[in-house]
C-alpha cells in the first residue's frame, strides 16, 4: 500500500505567548516542531505499513527550514520525504494550500491512502485534509480515532463525532485526518536516525509540481486577512489579595455564592 502523510511545521504551542507590554507575539525561544496531530498521522502510516506492507512517503509544504521535520519523520519510520517549498507559496490560504499539496502528492506517486492530522495547531482550521481530498478526488473521513481493518480496498474505521462516534466503511483510495486518540507516536529509532542522517530529501518547487502560478500563494487565495488586533480585555476585575488564609476565605465565599447562590 502506498501511503502518503502530509505534515506541517508549526511553532511549539507551549512557547508562544503574548508580550503583555507590547501586545505582540513573543517569539523568543519558540521552537518549530511537527504539528502534534501530524505525528499521529505519521505513526498511523508507519503502523499500517508494518501490518499491510507498502511505503510511507511524507510531504511537507513550507519554508526551507521545514526540512527538519521531514528528517525527523524519516527517523520515525517514513521511507521517502518531499519538501514542497517556493516563495510563490507565501500567503496561501487553505484553498491555495490544498491545490499546492494535491499537485505535490500527484508528483510523489499514486497514493492508496493519504493521512493528515485533523488540523494544524497554528491555524486550527481543519480545512486542508478535506480540501486536499476533493482535489485528489478521494473520499475522506475526518477525526479518525481508530483504523479497525483494511480488506479488499475497504477501510473500516471509527470517526469521532460530537455525541459519540461513527463506525464507517470507506473505499480506497481515501484520505483520513486523525485525532490523538488513534495511537501513541514512537520515538525515533537508532536505525531510523542513522537512515535520516544520510537521507536526501527531495525538494519540489512550484515549477517541479507543474503548478498554475495564478492558483498559488496569496494570489490563489480567496480569503484575505484585512486586520489583526489583540483580543479585547475584560473591564472590571477584582484582585483577591492578602495572606493565604484570607485569600481562601474570600475565594470560598465567591465560589459558594456563585455555585449555590441565587
Amino acid at each position: 500500500m502506498n501511503i502518503v502523510v502530509c505534515i506541517k511545521q508549526v511553532p511549539d504551542a507551549k512557547d508562544v505567548r503574548l508580550d503583555p507590554e507590547t501586545n505582540t507575539l513573543s517569539r523568543e525561544g519558540v521552537k518549530s516542531v511537527i504539528n502534534p496531530y501530524d505525528r499521529h498521522a505519521l505513526e498511523e502510516g508507519v503502523r499500517l505499513k508494518e501490518e499491510y506492507g507498502g511505503t510511507v512517503t511524507v510531504i511537507s509544504m513550507g519554508p526551507p527550514q521545514a526540512q527538519a521535520i521531514l528528517t525527523e519523520a524519516i527517523s520515525c519510520g517514513a521511507d521517502e520525504a518531499f519538501l514542497v517549498s517556493d516563495r510563490a507559496f507565501a500567503g496561501a490560504d487553505t484553498l491555495a494550500t490544498t491545490y499546492t499539496l494535491a499537485q505535490a502528492v500527484a508528483k510523489a506517486g499514486k497514493p492508496d491512502l493519504v493521512l493528515c492530522g485533523k488540523q494544524a495547531t497554528d491555524g486550527d482550521t481543519a480545512q486542508v485534509g478535506p480540501g486536499l481530498a476533493v482535489r485528489l478526488d478521494m473520499p475522506f473521513v475526518t477525526c479518525v480515532k481508530k483504523v479497525r481493518t483494511i480488506a479488499k480496498d475497504v477501510l473500516t474505521l471509527e470517526r469521532m463525532m460530537d455525541d459519540g462516534y461513527d463506525v464507517l466503511e470507506v473505499d480506497l483510495p481515501a484520505l483520513l485526518t486523525v485525532v490523538k486518540e488513534i495511537n501513541t507516536p514512537r520515538f525515533p529509532s537508532l536505525r531510523g536516525m542513522r537512515r535520516a542522517r544520510d537521507y536526501q530529501i527531495t525538494s519540489l518547487t512550484a515549477e517541479d509540481i507543474g503548478a498554475d502560478s495564478s492558483r498559488l500563494g496569496l494570489g490563489g487565495s480567496p480569503t484575505q486577512v484585512v486586520s489583526v488586533f489583540p483580543p479585547e480585555k475584560k473591564g472590571d476585575r477584582t484582585m483577591i489579595e492578602g495572606s493565604v488564609a484570607e485569600q481562601v476565605d474570600k475565594l470560598a465565599e465567591i465560589l459558594f455564592d456563585s455555585a449555590f447562590g441565587a
Binding site: 487553505t94 484553498l95 480545512q127 485534509g129 478535506p130 480540501g131 481530498a133 475522506f140 463525532m161 480569503t223
Partner: peptide, 23 residues
Amino acid sequence: ATAIGRSFIPRVATSLNTGLTAD
C-alpha cells in the same frame, strides 16, 4: 464548527472554489 460542519463544509468550499474561514 461542529464535527459535521468542520468535516464537510471545507469540501463544499473547495468544490465551489471559494474561501472558508473556520471558527
